Amino acid sequence: MNDLSEADNIAQVAQHLQQAQRVLFITGAGLSADSGLPTYRGIGGLYQQQDTEDQVPIEVALSYGMLRTHPALTWKYLLQIEQACRGVGYNRGHEVIAKLAQDKEVWVLTQNIDGFHHAAGSPNLIEIHGRLQHIHCMSCKHKEVWPDFSHLQLENLPPVCPACGGILRPAVVLFGEMLSPLETLSLTQQVQQGFDIVFSVGTSSLFPYIVAPVLEAKHDGVPTVEINPGKTEISNAVDYRLRNRAAKILDDIWNTWKQMS
């Protein structure tokens, strides 16, 4: 990491971006927070206290074990999260990443389940934690896509499959579940091909599969960039650390890059 000003760092990142052909963006909750999405915890979070109103941590309520044994409770909190996000859309940060994909081969590895990268038009997505709007049955192969959960009522949870009567669930990775093998394979294949620059945007970088592409790029001499107001596990390892809101910094990088083009 260097000690340049934010403007100088942005200029250097834009210069690297100009020369790059393959770009990786790793995105987390900090990017969607600029759309107004709440986090689970922290100031302004949905669940600032240790436990939910049902006296269990949100991580337990949103676990695979709870879904199997008390599906109505898990769905109660899935519905709360979806209600808090309803009507919110992608922001300028998502737009910038999608626009870059019109000029370069851009891949997005995202922890977010909101589908904003897809809606913004990014073509190469690795949604490692799934997407909330994709619904499937736990008992058969039935699948649906729900724009939102407005048709659900608390007293009628969990929703059931119209084909077999089994319990429906969103195609997201709950606590205690394994990652999707298909998404994991896609990530491995793309990292093996290598990238010309790697961005970590709005993620606390707590999971090994989120950290590894950054550290591997750094080891290979590939420029690495972190966009995050706070300090994370990779902050001291990256070449460029931009401590500001994701949407603002990405827009600044876009504008600087366009001036160079």
Score class of each variant (00 low, 15 high):
248 K>T: 14
60 V>D: 12
165 G>N: 09
63 S>C: 04
206 L>Q: 15
107 W>Q: 04
222 V>F: 02
207 F>G: 10
230 G>F: 08
210 I>C: 08
35 S>R: 01
89 G>M: 07
73 L>T: 10
152 L>G: 05
55 Q>G: 10
28 G>I: 03
80 Q>P: 13
119 A>R: 15
216 E>G: 08
193 Q>P: 07
3 D>K: 10
163 A>Q: 14
170 P>D: 06
81 I>W: 08
246 A>S: 11
120 A>N: 02
117 H>S: 00
174 L>E: 05
109 L>C: 04
33 A>K: 08
243 R>E: 15
50 Q>T: 12
83 Q>S: 09
31 L>W: 08
59 E>I: 07
261 S>V: 14
256 T>E: 02
102 Q>C: 09
239 D>K: 00
210 I>G: 05
91 N>Y: 00
131 R>I: 11
94 H>A: 00
40 Y>F: 15
169 R>G: 05
251 D>P: 07
251 D>N: 13
35 S>M: 04
158 P>S: 00
142 H>N: 11
12 Q>N: 15
79 L>K: 12
124 N>H: 15
94 H>R: 03
181 P>Y: 07
55 Q>Y: 11
247 A>N: 11
236 N>R: 11
73 L>S: 09
82 E>I: 01
77 Y>W: 11
64 Y>A: 10
250 L>C: 02
150 S>R: 12
84 A>F: 11
62 L>F: 12
177 E>L: 06
228 N>W: 07
164 C>V: 05
220 D>P: 04
7 A>P: 06
138 M>W: 08
235 S>V: 03
57 P>G: 00
182 L>I: 13
46 L>T: 00
2 N>F: 00
199 F>K: 05
106 V>Q: 02
127 E>Q: 05
7 A>C: 11
56 V>K: 14
14 A>P: 02
166 G>E: 04
223 P>W: 03
147 P>C: 02
245 R>G: 09
253 I>Y: 03
248 K>C: 12
30 G>P: 01
124 N>I: 08
69 T>L: 13
29 A>C: 10
